[in-house]
C-alpha cells in the first residue's frame, strides 16, 4: 500500500534464472478468470443464499462440494467472487497500466530527448507528483469524485506515471547519445519519426518490465482502497472489498479474509517474479530499473 514508485530505485539480483513457470501460470489463471469469469464461476458472484451462509471450504468439516472455497455471511460463493474480483482487478490494472505507461513514457521521452526547458518542467512535475503520497491523494479524490473504477484508475495513473516517466527519461537520455540516433538526425529524419521508429522500440523492453511489475502493485493498491471502502463499490466485487467485508468475521470464518488475501498475494508475487525475470532476461547486466 505504500508508495511503490520509489522502489524503482532497487537494483536487481543478477544472473539469469529459468523461466518462472509457476508465476506465469498464476498470472495466466488470473487473466483467464478475468476474461472468462462469468462462464467459469459456479455461481453468480452476487447471488445470495442466506441458508448457505458461512459454509466453510469444502475440505473443512461442514463444507459442501457446491461451495469449493466456502461462502460468506450472505451465502455468496467465495470462489465465484474471487473469479469476479479477478476481472475487476485485471480491468483496472490494464487501464491503469496503459494510461500511466503511455503518459509516463511520452513525457519521459520528451524530457529525455529534448532536455532543456521541457526537461526541467517535466522533472519538476514529477517532483511535485512524487511529493504527494499516493494514499492521501486517493483519499482526496475519493472525497470529491464518485467512488468506483474510474476514480481508482485516475488515482493510480496519477501516482504511477512518474514511475515510467523517470525511467524512460533516463533511458532516452542515454539513447540520445548513441550513434544511430545521431545518424538519424544527421540524415534529416523528422523528430516524430525518430520517436516512433528509433526511441520507442528501444524502450519497449523496459516498458514491459515496468508494466509487469506495476500489475502487482496496482492490485495491492486497489485492494487497499477498496478495503477502506473508497475503491470498488458493492455490488461490484473486489478482493479488497471482500477482505473488508470479512474482517468482522475474522474469528468465526477464517476463509473470508484468508482466501481473498491469498489471491492478492499470489497475483502480486507472480507479477513481481515475472517482472524480475523479464528484467534479468532483457538486460542481464545489473542496472537501475
Amino acid at each position: 500500500m505504500t508508495d511503490i514508485t520509489r522502489d524503482a530505485e532497487i537494483t536487481t539480483t543478477e544472473g539469469q534464472s529459468g523461466f518462472p513457470f509457476i508465476a506465469a501460470t498464476v498470472l495466466t489463471i488470473v487473466v483467464v478468470c478475468a476474461a472468462f469469469g462469468p462462464w467459469l464461476a459456479p455461481h453468480a458472484a452476487d447471488a445470495i443464499s442466506l441458508r448457505d451462509a458461512m459454509t466453510p471450504p469444502a475440505w473443512e468439516e461442514g463444507g459442501e462440494s457446491g461451495f469449493l472455497l466456502g461462502t460468506d455471511n450472505l451465502g455468496r460463493d467465495i470462489l465465484s467472487r474471487i473469479i469476479a474480483g479477478a476481472r475487476v482487478s485485471v480491468v483496472i490494472a490494464a487501464y491503469a497500466i496503459l494510461l500511466s505507461g503511455g503518459i509516463g513514457a511520452a513525457l519521459g521521452m520528451i524530457a529525455g530527448y529534448f532536455g532543456g526547458v521541457p526537461d526541467s518542467i517535466i522533472s519538476r512535475l514529477i517532483d511535485v507528483q512524487m511529493s504527494v503520497p499516493s494514499l492521501p491523494l486517493a483519499l482526496l479524490f475519493a472525497s470529491v469524485l464518485p467512488p468506483g473504477e474510474g476514480m481508482v484508475i485516475l488515482v493510480i495513473v496519477m501516482t504511477y506515471w512518474t514511475w515510467y516517466a523517470r525511467i524512460v527519461r533516463g533511458e532516452v537520455l542515454s539513447l540520445r547519445e548513441r550513434d544511430f540516433i545521431a545518424l538519424a538526425k544527421v540524415a534529416g529524419v523528422s523528430t516524430p519519426i525518430i520517436f516512433i521508429r528509433h526511441l520507442t522500440p528501444n524502450i519497449l523492453n523496459t516498458m514491459l518490465v515496468l508494466a509487469t511489475l506495476q500489475f502487482g502493485s496496482v492490485i495491492v493498491f486497489e485492494a487497499g482502497l477498496s478495503f477502506l471502502g473508497l475503491g470498488i463499490q458493492p455490488p461490484q466485487v473486489s478482493w479488497g472489498g471482500m477482505l473488508s467485508d470479512g474482517r468482522n468475521f475474522i474469528e468465526v470464518a477464517w476463509w473470508l479474509i484468508t482466501i481473498p488475501g491469498i489471491a492478492i498475494m499470489a497475483s502480486c508475487l507472480a507479477s513481481n517474479i515475472l517482472g524480475d525475470w523479464l528484467r534479468d532476461t532483457f538486460d542481464p547486466v545489473r542496472r537501475q530499473l
Binding site: D46, A47, I48, L74, P235
Partner: peptide, 15 residues
C-alpha cells in the same frame, strides 16, 4: 451490527 450486509442482502432480494 451487520447493517451493511443486511442492506446488501435486502437489495439482492429486491433484484
Amino acid at each position: 451490527p451487520y447493517i451493511k450486509e443486511m442492506g446488501e442482502a435486502m437489495f439482492a432480494y429486491l433484484g
